[in-house]
């Protein structure tokens, strides 16, 4: 098996899907000639031409809206938002249109679009190049939100998203793009959207998280292993709709649950995970549910001191795990 970086897995998934299905095409700002500001679409313009790798005007609502139109027509658009932060001008198109098209037409029309966007901090991106925006979309039935952590998951889930009959938001952690590498099978495979994945089996405490924080939690878990604390780690992979069954069984397994997100704590995806556990696991819990998240300030500051203060780190997770284990 080849070892790929996270962003290479993105690129490979798109390339293979474009080879497989002529209806698949890419549109976004600077995705063509330049291959994207992060190079996620590198080489696709050369391979597939400007007709299928479209450099759009700088207008996010049109990127989403034109993609939605093309998806309703029967194409399989992959729209790129240059940064998740700049998805906001397109929110109306995503919520009022993409998410509701099947439902509002009573199943007559559908909207198989993928909207990819790099999210997340720790890259000196300051307020508007660091945000986690999933919570804005994570209460909208009709949408699916995938946030993979490993290159293997990226490739299998992005392919599944492109083949999905409904709109999928695919958020890629930009710090993971080159930091995270992993084995990825050469051939074609898809992973199920809506299924969480156990990334580590353990007995003492359960950690539930997604995205880059999965790697931080794995690191912290290895440290705790040396101290004799065994960590069970569930990677949500899809943050909407949630894999409730996996959440409930992971929580029940150890009775002590730590939920980790890089997003602001208040109203985050983890607030919902916490509610699912509270509703279903009262008699299995041996400690109050804990959440480790960013502070409730508007977004991530630029200066390294404040950025580090805001960001989740393996050390912060390790400390939170210890506290929980000792409860």
């Amino acid at each position: 098996m080849a070892v790929l970086s996270y962003i290479e897995a993105v690129n490979q998934a798109i390339r293979e899907e474009m080879e497989r299905d002529p209806r698949v095409f890419v549109l976004g700002e600077d995705v063509g000639r330049k291959g994207g500001v992060f190079k996620a679409t590198q080489g696709l313009y050369e391979r597939f031409g400007g007709e299928r790798v479209i450099d759009t005007p700088l207008a996010e609502s049109a990127i989403a809206g034109v993609g939605i139109g093309a998806a309703m027509y029967g194409m399989r658009p992959i729209a790129e938002m240059q940064f998740a932060d700049f998805i906001l001008p397109a929110v109306n198109q995503i919520l009022s249109e993409a998410a509701r098209i099947r439902y509002r037409s009573n199943n007559d029309w559908n909207c198989p679009i993928v909207i990819r966007a790099p999210y997340g901090g720790g890259i000196h991106g300051a307020l508007y190049h660091s945000q986690s925006v999933e919570a804005i979309f994570a209460n909208q039935p009709g949408l699916k939100i995938v946030m993979p952590s490993t290159p293997y998951d990226v490739k299998g889930l992005l392919k599944a998203a492109i083949r999905d009959e409904d709109p999928v938001l695919f958020f890629e952690h930009k710090k993971a793009y080159r930091l995270i590498k992993g084995e990825v099978p050469e051939g074609d495979y898809v992973l199920p959207i809506g299924k969480a994945d156990i990334k580590r089996e353990g007995e003492d405490i359960t950690v539930i998280t997604y995205g880059l924080c999965v790697h931080y939690a794995l690191k912290a878990a290895e440290k705790l292993e040396e101290e004799g604390i065994s960590v069970h780690l569930l990677d949500l992979r899809t943050v909407y709709p949630l894999d409730q069954e996996a959440i409930i069984s992971a929580a029940a397994k150890t009775g002590k649950v730590l939920l980790v997100t890089e997003d602001n704590k208040e109203g985050s995806v983890m607030s919902e995970v916490s509610a699912v556990i509270a509703e279903n696991c009262l008699f299995d819990l041996d400690a109050p549910i804990r959440r480790l998240a960013a502070p409730d300030v508007p977004a991530m500051p630029f200066a390294p001191t404040m950025e580090n203060y805001f960001m989740i780190s393996p050390e912060k997770i390790e400390q939170a795990m210890k506290d929980l284990a000792e409860f």
Partner: peptide
């Protein structure tokens, strides 16, 4: 309006 552009693009 963007949808119309997308439909036309698909066609």
């Amino acid at each position: 309006i963007p949808h119309a552009a997308g439909i036309a693009l698909g066609a």
